[in-house]
Every structure is written in structure tokens, then in C-alpha cells.
Design a protein around this nucleic acid. Structure first.
Lengths: 280, 280
DNA sequence: CGCTTAATTGACACCAGTCAATACCCGTGG
DNA sequence: CCACGGGTATTGACTGGTGTCAATTAAGCG
């Protein structure tokens, strides 16, 4: 049972919003401005687990009888080939539920990409909750659709775009997925939460290419590299353009909220869903 | 309203199982051995539409207030770039429901890849059916999961494998997705339903590469090319190996059936679901 | 029997992955 | 305080696979 504590030396920096501006009052880790799902805090501390990066959550081989709720951090759904090649198929963000369906195939696994706060839920208990709570059912359905949307983007990118375009697209999307501070002058600073390796394996390219592209972008004046984990976006519109996500941008981000309305119409419920009182 | 009749000259051949062996009694078009979903025939002829290949079903721009049930044929979910590049994100098979959610983004569209028999369902009516029929809800959820599984395979392939491996994988999977006749000697004949162009755009490669790979495989003795639309698999295990889907193979195919059991447990219902009495 | 479209084959160039070496950051221990 | 060590990021040189372009063949249909 690998339960690990918070202070992992080499990652403290990565998980903070460092640039000097206290826009959000709280300690503001990954919680900051995340429109996906509802990063509810788990009430019962007994079910909470704080995980260091690269810690295994779902192994794929060992089915594992738990469902996970993400309180904070980013998880990755990945797949390894025998020769070591890895492809990240999807990322999971705070508020999302992982491990109930489809994440426990042979060969695929789920791990933490960053320092993460999870909440463990017993599978049977979760199924009971599902059968009783329409709101939760609707939420789960919604999340599944979100995952499909994101996967559609990734598939499109991998198939039709080059490495540079893909990276630009990801960067643009990251303004909504990771801590991003808009500055008065229209620029903004992104805290890159994912290590290079994960970015590379997500976009099906290499760390070398990532580096090259990033520096090329900085020479073009699109971004400014403060340090490897902090990028200043000088021209976000251009980034969106380069990433060919003009149309996808809104949908992929604001989708969840809009979609919920349509679903609620027939899947029942009225309240705005605190969603999970986790465990108990 | 582009309702077209069955006899499209240049595709008659492609849509038949031609090789001399009447294994399946009926006229046996795409209906033959399709484990995905339940290709129920639509009772009311008024809602039925037979579509020629490359006919638009969902435009993406014009929302379109219909949901579609696939009686026969294969549909493709695709996305175009401004410069003409196209990526096929997913295929839909008989028994599946299309157009309810997530297929009507900006930029993406759904078209018929082969001659197809559809059934048009009014969106509002469909929503009503959904709210009343637990079975249908469960089925829809199940299909969403199936699409995720298939998309996971595609994403994995695009990201981690080369064109040759991807094609081999697709071919292996096609034994369950398209008409495939197992012969006594262990070999089998696949009727390729998709035109080269669609295969290329699905696997993010070119028709030239497809051709080259196919002929290379025939020289290696893995397959035999009877004609462009009919391949004889001399060594299916090798094909599975080359496509790196050893583990995925079963799951991707038999998944739907198994999964249903788990879902039904809490999403209610007992019967084996005729699923849709379409329209009315 | 000629037309259009699809499929094949060949020649070529270039992008991006691979390998290898260096620079950088950070935490540790002397 | 500084030297060391491990990991990450960066940079450079090289090569091979694949896409691109163009031409040929084959097939299907009127």
C-alpha cells in the first residue's frame, strides 16, 4: 500500500504558482481555475490519499476494486508496448472519477502525472451510490462524453497535425487545464504541470522535439521561456491558430457546463450537484 | 432531403460477399457476423433511409435535429482541416446510435463510408424514449464506452505504432468488423468494405503506403491479395502480432457483451434488449 | 469500346526520431 | 560555502521512413 506524503523535493516548485501575483487567495495549487468537474473535497480523511508523481493508481493487470475521485493533481491514462514505447491516451483532472469503467484493460494503466490528492471509493459502494443517485449517474455520463471529446482532439492531432501544431494546441488548451495567470497586457503565464516526458508521450513525439519547438516559438515571439516550467504566452491567439483549435477551443472547455443542461432534461435531477460526499 | 436508393453502380461489388461459399444463408451484406450492437430492423418504413456511400448524415455546422440508428453499413466520424486534410476519428457500425451527443461539433461530420441503411429518429422523441426506457439508457452508455475503447486503440496506434503496424492491427480487427469467412484450413477471406482512402485517413497515412504495405505483406506470405477488396489471411496470428493487439483483440471485440452485465446491475433492467422499436 | 475513377509503382526530399554530448537546476554532504 | 551527483533540459549531427509528386496500370460502367 504505497501511501506517500506530500513533500517530494524535486516537485515542490512545479506544483506552485510562483510568479509574483496573488490573484487567487488560497494556497492555489492545481485547484486554481479548473473548469472540469467539481473538485470537491473529500469529507472523510480516511479515504484520502496523497500520491507522489508517477505513482500507480490502476495497474491494468490487477483489476483493483476501487474507484477513484480526483481531488487535485493530474492523472494519466497510458499504455506501454513491450519495447518501452509509451503513449498517454488521456489525462484526468480534478473532479473526475477514474477506475469505474474502461480504465482497467490489459496493458493500460493509470498513474499520477503530478503530485495528486485522491479519494478512494469502494467499487461496490460506488455502484450503490450510482444506482441511488441520478445526479451522479448524469455526472458520470457527462464525464464520459468529456473524455470522448478530449480523445477526439488528441486523435485528430496525432493523425492530421505535425508535432509543432500539436504542441501549440496543447499549450492553448493548457490555459484552461493548468494554472494560468492572465496579465493586464493580454499576455499570461502558464505553469506547466506536466514534465517534458509526459508531454512528449501524450503528443507522440520526443522530449527533444518539444524542446526544439518551444525554443523556436520563443524566437518567433509567440512565447517567452522564463524557465522550463513557466511559459509566458505573448500571443495566445496565434498559438490557437497554430494549434488549429479555433473551433475546438470553446467546445472542449466550456462543453461540460452546457452539456449538463441537455442531459439533466431527461436524466432527471434539478440541483447543481455537489456530486460526491465520498465514501461513508 | 437526399434520400437515395440502393443501386449505386460502382459499389455493388464491394458490398457483397462474393467468394464462393454460402456460409450465411441470407443475402448477407454487412449484416453478416457483426458482434457490435444489435442490428435491429426498423419496423416503420417511413423512417428508413438508404444512403449511398459518402452521403452526409450529420454536418457539424447545421446541428440537425435527428438521431440516427444504423441498420446496416458503416459510418465514419471525420474532421476536415482547411487545407483538405482529413482524419477519420471513429467508425460506427450496425446497431449503433449516432447523432445524439458529441457528433455535432463544429468541424466534425458524419458520413456514410459504405452503402448504408439508416433509421431516422426525431431527437425529442428519442429523448422521451430515453427518459422512459432504462434499457435504452444502459445501451447508450454501453455504446459510449465502446466508442471510447475503439478510440483508445486508434489513439494508441497513431501515437505509438508505424503505418505498417497500424494497418495490420486494423486488418486483424476487421475480421470481426467486416464480413470475414473462415475457411477450413485456418485461413480466411476478408471483404474489405472501406475504400482505400478511408483506410488511409483512418490510420493517418496515405493510399500509397496502404498499397505498398499490403503488397509487402503478400510477399511475406501473411496475406494474399485476390483483388483490392478481398484479402485472404494466410496467417492471422502473425497479423495480430504485427498489429500489437495481442491483448486488445479480445477486449475490443467481446467487450460489449461482457460489459453489459456489469452495467445492468445498477442501471436496471433484465431483458436482453431488443433495444429499439424505432420511431413511432 | 472509350471514359472516369481507383489502385499501383517509382523517384525524391524532408521532417522528425535516434544517438550522443553538454548545460542546467537543485539538493546533498563535506 | 563550495564541490559533487542525479536528474532534467537543451543542442547538434545524422539517418531512415513516409509523405509528396508524377506516371502507369487496372477496373468498372456507360
Amino acid at each position: 500500500m504505497e501511501l506517500q506524503l506530500l513533500s517530494m523535493p524535486q516537485f515542490t516548485e512545479r506544483n506552485l504558482v510562483p510568479v509574483g501575483s496573488p490573484t487567487c487567495g488560497k494556497p492555489c495549487g492545481v485547484r486554481c481555475r479548473l473548469p472540469l468537474g467539481t473538485p470537491t473535497t473529500c469529507g472523510d480523511p480516511r479515504h484520502r490519499e496523497d500520491r507522489a508523481p508517477d505513482s500507480k493508481v490502476i495497474s491494468g493487470d490487477a483489476p483493483g476494486h476501487d474507484v477513484w475521485f480526483i481531488r487535485s493533481g493530474i492523472l494519466r491514462l497510458q499504455r506501454h508496448a513491450l519495447d518501452g514505447r509509451r503513449q498517454i491516451l488521456s489525462l484526468f483532472f480534478p473532479g473526475e472519477i477514474v477506475g469505474f469503467e474502461g480504465e482497467s484493460h490489459e496493458g493500460v494503466s493509470v498513474e499520477t502525472a503530478t503530485l495528486s490528492g485522491l479519494c478512494r471509493i469502494d467499487r461496490r459502494k460506488f455502484e450503490t451510490m450510482l444506482s441511488e443517485d441520478k445526479t451522479l449517474r448524469a455526472e458520470l455520463f457527462r464525464q464520459k462524453q468529456d473524455q470522448l471529446d478530449r480523445l477526439h482532439w488528441l486523435t485528430w492531432s496525432l493523425g492530421a497535425l505535425g508535432p509543432e501544431e500539436r504542441l501549440c494546441g496543447l499549450l492553448a488548451l493548457s490555459t484552461r487545464l493548468m494554472p494560468y495567470q492572465s496579465l493586464p497586457d493580454g499576455t499570461g503565464i502558464l505553469s506547466v504541470q506536466l514534465p517534458r516526458r509526459d508531454i512528449a508521450d501524450l503528443l507522440a513525439t520526443t522530449v527533444e522535439s518539444i524542446s526544439r519547438i518551444l525554443h523556436k516559438l520563443s524566437e518567433t515571439g509567440v512565447i517567452e521561456i522564463r524557465d522550463p516550467a513557466h511559459l509566458r504566452f505573448l500571443d495566445l491567439p496565434r498559438l490557437i491558430e497554430l494549434g488549429r483549435i479555433d473551433d475546438l477551443f470553446d467546445r472542449l472547455i466550456s462543453g461540460p457546463a452546457k452539456r449538463r443542461n441537455r442531459l439533466d432534461a431527461f436524466m432527471a435531477l434539478a440541483s447543481d450537484s455537489p456530486v460526491l460526499s465520498c465514501g461513508r
